[in-house]
C-alpha cells in the first residue's frame, strides 16, 4: 500500500511539473503581442525593450520559467501585467465560489443518484428502472449550457423566483456573508443559497445523470454476484445487503467516475459562471483571456490543472481505502 502511494506520489509530482511547463509554454506559443496589449499605441521598440526588461521577459524562456516556478513554489503567483493586482488575491476571491458551487452540486448529485440507482437496480428492467434509464439517457444528451439557459428562462424569468436571477450573483460570491452585518446569518445564507440555485442545479443535473447511470449498472452487476446470495443466506435484511454488500464494492466505480467528472465539472462550471456572470475562477480566466492578461492566464490555468490532478489523486486514495484490491495490482 505504502509502495503504491509512493509511486503515485512521484507520478503526481512529475505530472504537475509537466503541467507547469505546459501552462508556461502554452502562453508563449499563443499568437498575440504582449507589448501591444500593455503599451497600446506606445508600443515602440524602445518602450518594448524597457518593458520586457522590467518584467524579466528579456531573459531566456528557461530562465523565465524557473523564475516563475520559484515564485510559485513560494506561494506567489505574481501580479497581473495589466491591472497590477496580485493574482493570489484574485484567485483567493474567486476560488471559494467554485468550491461552493462544486461541493453543493456534488452533494445534491450524490444524494439523488445513490437512492434512485438503488431503487432502479432492485428490479432491473422493472418499470422504474426503464423510466429512469430512459430519462437519464435523454438528459445525458442535453449539454449543460442548454440546461442552464432553460433553468434561467424557467426559474428566474418565467417563475420570477426571487434571488435566483443573474442580478443576484453579486451577493453570491463573498464568503463575507458569514460575517455580514447586513441582515442576520440566515437571511444572508438564504441569499447565498438562492443565488446558488441555478448554477448548482445545472452542475448537479449533469453529474447526477452520470452517477446514476454508472451506479445503476454497477449495482445490477454486483447484485448478481455470488457474495450477494451469500449475504442473503446469512439472513441479512435487504437494506443491509444493499448498503453493506452491494453499494460498497459498487462505489468504487462511482468514485472513479466522480474523479473523472471533476475536470469536466470545473470546466462546465466555467461556462455556467460566464453565462451567469458569476465571478468565479471561470470568469476570471475568461476575462483574462479576453484582456490577454498573460500571467493571470498562465497562473490560473496552472492552479486549475493542479487542482484537477490533486483531486484525482485524492479520489484514487479514497478508492483504495474502499477497495483494497486496487493497491495490490
Amino acid at each position: 500500500m505504502l509502495k503504491y502511494f509512493t509511486k503515485r506520489l512521484v507520478a503526481l509530482v512529475l505530472i504537475i511539473t509537466a503541467i507547469s511547463i505546459g501552462s508556461f509554454y502554452m502562453i508563449h506559443l499563443l499568437p498575440g503581442d504582449l507589448a501591444t496589449v500593455i503599451l497600446g499605441s506606445g508600443n515602440t521598440p524602445e518602450n518594448k525593450k524597457k518593458l520586457f526588461a522590467q518584467l524579466g521577459l528579456d531573459k531566456g524562456l528557461v530562465h523565465q520559467y524557473l523564475t516563475w516556478m520559484s515564485h510559485v513554489l513560494r506561494g506567489d503567483l505574481g501580479k497581473s501585467y495589466i491591472t497590477n493586482e496580485s493574482i493570489n488575491t484574485s484567485i483567493a476571491k474567486a476560488l471559494p465560489i467554485d468550491l461552493e458551487m462544486i461541493v453543493v452540486s456534488q452533494i445534491v448529485a450524490f444524494a439523488a443518484a445513490i437512492p434512485l440507482a438503488m431503487k432502479a437496480a432492485k428490479k432491473p428492467n422493472g418499470l422504474f428502472d426503464r423510466i429512469s434509464n430512459g430519462v437519464t439517457f435523454g438528459l445525458l444528451s442535453v449539454p449543460s449550457f442548454i440546461i442552464v439557459v432553460y433553468l434561467v428562462l424557467i426559474i428566474a424569468i418565467k417563475w420570477q423566483v426571487p434571488g435566483t436571477g443573474p442580478a443576484s450573483f453579486t451577493r453570491f460570491p463573498e464568503w463575507s456573508w458569514l460575517f455580514s452585518d447586513t441582515g442576520t446569518f440566515f437571511t444572508t445564507l438564504k441569499d447565498n443559497l438562492m443565488s446558488l440555485l441555478i448554477p448548482s442545479l445545472t452542475l448537479s443535473i449533469g453529474s447526477f445523470v452520470v452517477y446514476f447511470r454508472v451506479l445503476r449498472s454497477d449495482l445490477i452487476a454486483t447484485l448478481q454476484e455470488e457474495y450477494i446470495t451469500m449475504a442473503r443466506s446469512k439472513g441479512l435484511s435487504r437494506r443491509r445487503i444493499m448498503w453493506r454488500h452491494a453499494f460498497r464494492p459498487s462505489s468504487v466505480a462511482l468514485l472513479g467516475t466522480a474523479g473523472i467528472n471533476i475536470g469536466g465539472l470545473i470546466a462546465g462550471g466555467f461556462v455556467v459562471q460566464y453565462l451567469l456572470s458569476i465571478p468565479g475562477l471561470g470568469s476570471l480566466l475568461i476575462a483574462s483571456i479576453t484582456l490577454q492578461d498573460y500571467l493571470v492566464i498562465q497562473s490560473t490555468v496552472f492552479v486549475v490543472a493542479v487542482a484537477v490532478i490533486v483531486i484525482n489523486f485524492a479520489v484514487d486514495f479514497i478508492t483504495t481505502l474502499v477497495d483494497p484490491r486496487i493497491a495490490r495490482d
Binding site: 503541467i19 502554452m26 499563443l30 475536470g263 470546466a267 492566464i297 490555468v301 486549475v304 490543472a305
Partner: peptide, 19 residues
Amino acid sequence: FTFLAFPSIIAIIAVLSFW
C-alpha cells in the same frame, strides 16, 4: 497522458481567443 491531465477546454478557449 500528461496532456490528458490538462483540462482541454481551457486550452481550446485560450487558443481560439488569441487566434
